[in-house]
Design a protein around this nucleic acid. Structure first.
Lengths: 146, 146
DNA sequence: TGATATAGTTCCCTTGTTGAATTGTTTTAC
DNA sequence: GTAAAACAATTCAACAAGGGAACTATATCA
């Protein structure tokens, strides 16, 4: 791939990612139930998948400082969506878990987002979508490993 | 494409997009010169491409309220990166343009981001990257048209 | 045991966002 | 030709999210 080709591809990538991200996050914002934000939902989903996790792990995964995570966690805690469970052995560690209410909200939102995305992704042939996602996952992997 | 396949694809899409977006925006954040944010850069780039535009157009493109745009524009104005040019005929309209300084900063940042993305995208075969981008552009189009 | 590292929090400041109200200007309808 | 409606941009108050520095409490290491 020569320089000019690469340049063109990157330009097109920037353009597409800008449009897709802005539009999708606006659509998702509208979907959110009272008071929940997209970031808060992201945290809920992450915890739901892992069953439990720590603030530091969230900070790493979300690529932000730990103080940002503390702030979000506090808001979710105040809404009674998550629980703080201190580790028995190492008392510096506080595990985060969803409450029943938190799990309900996360699942409800997941379904809504699935429905939203389905409206757009179903426009594509299965093969095209599969190929696309596979490359996207590769990109995610490259970004994670470096 | 049946329901379960679609469900799996969407799940994988959410996962990949989360990782890519979080990682890339953290990398881009580090690249930014003193005081400029990614959103501010996005606005500069948009204006640079169109030569000039209005606040309302930016609000539409960025999918946010006009008051958000006013806030960002004011910060860029204070940094002397953009100029406000009232329309001669319709005095409600204020066109935004880059100053020389603004154009310099935008171009400098664009080069840095190109270099950053090149480090990752160059890992892919040209054909794979082309196919990927083409689908991504289609998705952007579908999202824009609805 | 004393120094160092780690997990999480707190505090302060900045940015981006919303939504409602406001100002000034233009267009429309009668 | 004027009154009403529409429109572009701004202001303001409130909040979410982010960074960084300082801090607390606990654990590990030498």
């Amino acid at each position: 791939m020569d320089g000019e080709q690469l340049h063109q591809l990157i330009y097109r990538y920037e353009s597409a990612t800008f449009t897709v991200n802005r539009r999708l996050s606006a659509l998702i914002r509208e979907l959110m139930p009272g008071g929940l934000t997209a970031d808060q939902y992201g945290i809920l989903r992450y915890i739901q998948e892992r069953q439990r996790c720590t603030s530091s792990e969230l900070a790493d995964m979300f690529c932000v400082g730990k103080s940002s995570i503390t702030a979000i966690i506090t808001r979710l805690f105040d809404k009674e969506l998550i629980r703080r469970m201190p580790d028995e052995k190492d008392r510096r560690i506080i595990y985060l878990q969803l409450t029943e209410k938190g799990a309900g909200v996360a699942t409800e939102m997941e379904i809504k987002i699935q429905q939203l995305l389905a409206r757009y992704i179903s426009h594509f042939e299965e093969q095209e979508a599969e190929t696309f996602i596979r490359t996207y996952e590769k990109l995610a992997k490259v970004l994670t490993e470096q």
